[in-house]
Computed example of a mutant assay.
Amino acid sequence: MSAGPQRERRERDEAVARLARLDACAVSDALDSLGLPGAVLGLTALAAPRRIAGRAVTVELAEPSAEVAGSGRHLGTAAVDAAGPGDVIVVAHGGRTHAAGWGGVLSTGARRNGVEGVVVHGACRDVDEARELDLPLYATTGVPVTARGRVVEHAWNVPVDIASVPVAPGDLVIADASGVVFVPDAHAEEVLATAEAIAAKERAMVERIRAGHAMADVMSTDYETMLDR
């Protein structure tokens, strides 16, 4: 491997490491400050509710029709086979809750490959299996209904829409108990630097509170101006 790709890989890995040291709230605040979308509403941790950070490997699902024939393979399998440590599988299920867009066998494969976690915009099933596997799984809800005959994979590793937030393969993903946030790869450095500055300001506020400063003073003078640049 030449120096160029090696350097690019190191930079991408360092971006994920920096993201993992933050939380979803600081990253969301950074996106707000920069006027960028990214925070997704309505997704919650259903299994292994711990913070995850990584690069998006996307899957686009659709209901079968004359216009959408599907890929011919089981949904999600290509993404699982391609993904590994540092990756988060992101399933664009269109917010559907009448059938699952992810299930237990897929979770087993994702866990085997060291995937950081899975984000599904819609329902998933076999949540107990994901919990037993200790695989972080963020989704709209759990449902027992199979995807068979109801949902197919339209494409994978393509730009997708997650609750009106555009997500491209390789974009950064962070998820924790507060929710799921995506960072466009093109803005990664700016967003990470801004989020790190915000997190530092928050730590300073906490220290002032622990030192005995009045809450009203700390919150009024620091919190409202936290996103100022």
Results as ranks from 00 to 15, higher is better:
residue 35 G to M: 06
residue 137 L to W: 08
residue 144 P to H: 01
residue 186 A to P: 02
residue 116 E to C: 02
residue 215 M to P: 02
residue 64 P to S: 11
residue 107 S to H: 14
residue 25 C to A: 15
residue 55 R to H: 10
residue 102 W to R: 03
residue 162 I to S: 05
residue 143 V to M: 05
residue 178 S to T: 15
residue 193 A to M: 08
residue 188 A to D: 07
residue 104 G to L: 07
residue 200 A to D: 11
residue 107 S to P: 05
residue 158 V to P: 00
residue 210 R to P: 03
residue 1 M to I: 10
residue 60 E to I: 09
residue 187 H to N: 13
residue 4 G to F: 15
residue 148 R to Q: 13
residue 123 A to V: 08
residue 61 L to A: 09
residue 96 R to F: 03
residue 186 A to V: 14
residue 197 A to F: 07
residue 7 R to F: 06
residue 176 D to T: 14
residue 227 L to Y: 08
residue 135 L to C: 02
residue 48 A to R: 04
residue 25 C to Y: 15
residue 27 V to W: 11
residue 182 F to A: 07
residue 29 D to R: 14
residue 160 V to L: 08
residue 122 G to L: 00
residue 58 T to L: 03
residue 210 R to Y: 10
residue 220 S to I: 12
residue 130 A to Y: 06
residue 189 E to L: 11
residue 67 E to S: 13
residue 4 G to E: 15
residue 72 G to P: 00
residue 34 L to A: 09
residue 159 P to R: 00
residue 136 P to Q: 04
residue 208 R to D: 12
residue 100 A to T: 07
residue 80 V to M: 11
residue 225 T to D: 14
residue 110 A to N: 05
residue 8 E to D: 13
residue 175 A to H: 06
residue 23 D to I: 07
residue 150 R to N: 07
residue 182 F to V: 06
residue 63 E to C: 06
residue 50 R to E: 15
residue 181 V to I: 05
residue 75 L to V: 08
residue 196 E to D: 01
residue 4 G to C: 09
residue 200 A to G: 11
residue 142 G to Q: 04
residue 155 A to F: 00
residue 132 E to M: 15
residue 3 A to F: 11
residue 181 V to H: 03
residue 97 T to E: 02
residue 83 A to R: 04
residue 118 V to Q: 09
residue 151 V to G: 03
residue 89 I to L: 12
residue 100 A to G: 06
residue 54 G to L: 08
residue 18 R to Y: 00
residue 225 T to M: 12
residue 59 V to M: 01
residue 167 V to R: 02
residue 164 S to Y: 08
residue 215 M to K: 06
residue 11 E to D: 12
residue 63 E to A: 13
residue 90 V to M: 06
residue 91 V to P: 00
residue 8 E to H: 09
residue 163 A to Y: 00
residue 41 L to N: 06
residue 84 G to T: 02
residue 51 R to H: 12
residue 43 L to D: 07
residue 207 E to N: 10
residue 38 G to L: 12
residue 43 L to I: 10
residue 210 R to K: 11
residue 200 A to M: 06
residue 223 Y to H: 12
residue 159 P to W: 04
residue 17 A to V: 11
residue 185 D to S: 15
residue 8 E to K: 10
residue 47 A to Y: 03
residue 37 P to S: 03
residue 60 E to P: 00
residue 166 P to E: 06
residue 208 R to M: 11
residue 162 I to V: 15
residue 30 A to S: 04
residue 184 P to V: 13
residue 27 V to P: 09
residue 52 I to N: 02
residue 71 S to I: 06
residue 111 R to L: 10
residue 76 G to R: 03
residue 162 I to A: 04
residue 172 L to C: 05
residue 42 G to T: 10
residue 227 L to K: 11
